[in-house]
Amino acid sequence: MTDTEVLRYTAFSEDPQGGNPAGVVLDASGLDDAAMLEIAAGLGYSETAFLTGPAGPVWPEEAAPEAGRGFTVRYFSPKAEVPFCGHATVAAAVALAERIGPGELLFTTRAGDVPVSVTAEEGHVRATLTSVVPEVDDISPADLAEALAALDWPEADLDPAFPPRIAYAGARHLVLGAGTRARLADLAYDFARLEALMRRLDLTTVQLVHRAGPAEFHVRDPFPVGGVVEDPATGAAAAAFGAYARELGLVPEDAVLTLHQGADMGRPGVLTVELRAGDPRVRVGGTGVRIP
């Protein structure tokens, strides 16, 4: 394990001081689960991506990636494995593009196959992932009350235009709408209490959202189950939110949404969420750059 190269990239920003940092191990073929968890915990980022390949399973012919561009990916937070992570996917795709060139990639994750398209423009590398098929489910009144108590948010502070739901696009996230930008900015929650609820409901983050315009949102993501207070830019939650917003009719079926995240933490990032009519999957894109 001492010879394992661990790269550091930030996703959803062109500035190494912005976005969400992720670890990337491009060759994890010699690592077992304990070793991957140890690396992720030692690095301390919200997630680290561990790649094996190019090999992976046998894809259907129409979905097979170009030779050498299909990888199996696993994601570990400092505390546990997670089925899918958007920002670490973007980080890994940018790292690969710097070595094998831009183009189409296919990541096989525990949540399913995730195509990633990588482009390079004006010196910046941008990766766009396509989620697995999403789902949106109700949350019980009792569980919602517990979430609000853990957050110390009065129910009156919620935006009634954003009904609380659990949304999935590779991982499960509770979506709550903040009535004001000030409510979103004031985040001080009971870590242990929220973590216990999230573990019981199998949630990865809580996606807190404030609408700034028809297609523009500010978001924050508490992530106690990963061992960190807050995730600075959350691609999986962005995909889940896109599915949520479309299903509830908050945005058109064809839409490009802009999500601002991390500013309240001093790590601003921008996530682009694309919805296409007739395609249930959600595309999430952003730039990435290596952390010196």
Rank of each mutant, 00 (worst) to 15 (best):
residue 206 V to Q: 00
residue 206 V to A: 00
residue 207 Q to T: 09
residue 207 Q to W: 10
residue 207 Q to G: 07
residue 208 L to Q: 04
residue 210 H to D: 12
residue 210 H to I: 10
residue 211 R to C: 06
residue 211 R to D: 04
residue 212 A to C: 03
residue 212 A to T: 07
residue 213 G to P: 04
residue 213 G to A: 12
residue 213 G to W: 07
residue 214 P to M: 05
residue 214 P to C: 03
residue 215 A to L: 08
residue 215 A to F: 00
residue 216 E to F: 07
residue 217 F to C: 02
residue 217 F to Y: 10
residue 220 R to T: 02
residue 220 R to D: 02
residue 220 R to Q: 04
residue 222 P to E: 00
residue 223 F to A: 03
residue 223 F to Y: 06
residue 224 P to R: 01
residue 224 P to G: 00
residue 224 P to N: 01
residue 226 G to L: 01
residue 226 G to S: 00
residue 227 G to F: 00
residue 227 G to M: 00
residue 228 V to D: 02
residue 228 V to E: 03
residue 229 V to L: 07
residue 229 V to E: 11
residue 229 V to Y: 07
residue 230 E to Y: 07
residue 231 D to C: 11
residue 234 T to K: 01
residue 235 G to S: 06
residue 236 A to T: 13
residue 236 A to C: 08
residue 237 A to L: 03
residue 237 A to I: 04
residue 239 A to E: 11
residue 240 A to H: 03
residue 240 A to T: 01
residue 240 A to W: 02
residue 242 G to F: 10
residue 242 G to T: 01
residue 244 Y to E: 14
residue 245 A to W: 11
residue 245 A to Q: 12
residue 246 R to I: 15
residue 246 R to G: 12
residue 247 E to W: 13
residue 247 E to M: 10
residue 248 L to M: 12
residue 249 G to K: 14
residue 249 G to Q: 13
residue 250 L to A: 10
residue 250 L to V: 14
residue 250 L to I: 14
residue 253 E to A: 15
residue 254 D to T: 15
residue 255 A to R: 04
residue 256 V to G: 05
residue 256 V to I: 10
residue 259 L to A: 08
residue 259 L to I: 08
residue 260 H to I: 05
residue 262 G to T: 12
residue 262 G to A: 04
residue 263 A to F: 04
residue 264 D to V: 09
residue 265 M to R: 07
residue 266 G to A: 08
residue 266 G to I: 07
residue 267 R to N: 11
residue 268 P to H: 12
residue 269 G to P: 14
residue 270 V to S: 10
residue 271 L to S: 01
residue 271 L to V: 06
residue 271 L to H: 02
residue 272 T to W: 01
residue 273 V to W: 06
residue 273 V to C: 08
residue 274 E to Q: 13
residue 274 E to D: 11
residue 275 L to W: 08
residue 276 R to G: 06
residue 276 R to K: 09
residue 279 D to I: 11
residue 279 D to P: 10
residue 279 D to V: 13
residue 279 D to E: 14
residue 280 P to A: 15
residue 280 P to Q: 14
residue 282 V to L: 14
residue 282 V to Q: 13
residue 283 R to H: 13
residue 283 R to Q: 14
residue 283 R to L: 12
residue 283 R to T: 11
residue 284 V to E: 07
residue 284 V to Q: 14
residue 285 G to W: 13
residue 286 G to M: 05
residue 286 G to S: 10
residue 286 G to A: 05
residue 287 T to K: 15
residue 287 T to I: 15
